[in-house]
């Protein structure tokens, strides 16, 4: 043991310098060239930052496409999922309450048409996206509130829909912040 303590201490110090100083500073330095300069990508309108491109925001007003439910209320100082198990009776009641709220705000929509992702909380509590179906089901409400033709909104959702990666891999998604910013630009 004794013969190993010296090497263990000195090797640890040298590796600390390499792995915890040189390595992160090198990554951070090169990342300055990345979009967002290594600070995370932000979205700005007229020079004013309105959010992070990848971090979801809370949208609960009827005039915007609403984002998914979040266990942390879209507070990006932290993050978190509901951690409710599939068989939890309270969880079932919570989802039922979200369905009822959604039906109240979206008259004319049938319960069976509501996609589950719109009434279930994401893993991070900061999900920036909706599925295209979860965006489309909100069109008639927004058309009514904003007095816009539904066709226009349909095209808007189409434009903001990002297909699978490289056209092949993974699901389709719509970034809610981007969609709502585009919505505000209409008219």
């Amino acid at each position: 043991m004794k013969t190993h303590i010296g090497p263990a201490l000195r090797l640890t110090l040298a590796l600390l310098l390499l792995l915890s100083a040189v390595y992160p500073l090198l990554v951070g330095g090169i990342a300055r060239l990345a979009p967002g300069g290594g600070n995370g990508r932000t979205v700005s309108i007229l020079g004013k930052t309105v959010g992070y491109a990848d971090v979801g925001q809370s949208f609960t007003q009827d005039r915007y496409f609403n984002s998914r439910p979040s266990a942390v209320g879209y507070n990006p100082a932290g993050s978190g999922g509901s951690n409710k198990g599939p068989s939890n009776p309270d969880y079932r009641k919570e989802v039922q309450a979200r369905i009822d709220t959604f039906l109240n705000h979206n008259p004319g929509v049938h319960q069976a048409e509501i996609p589950a992702e719109l009434v279930t909380a994401s893993g991070s509590g900061l999900d920036p996206d909706l599925s295209p179906a979860a965006a489309r089901i909100q069109i008639s409400r927004i058309a009514r509130v904003r007095n816009l033709p539904p066709d226009l909104l349909n095209r808007l959702v189409d434009e903001c829909t990002e297909g699978p990666w490289l056209g092949l891999f993974g699901p389709e998604k719509v970034n809610v912040l981007r969609l709502n910013l585009a919505l505000d630009q209409l008219k």
Partner: peptide, 25 residues
Amino acid sequence: GNPAIASLGIGQPLGSMEGKEIRFG
């Protein structure tokens, strides 16, 4: 999908989505 959610009468075309992110599925 989660049978408990299916029994509420809504669709789960993307599967069980509680605790999951849209971009991964």
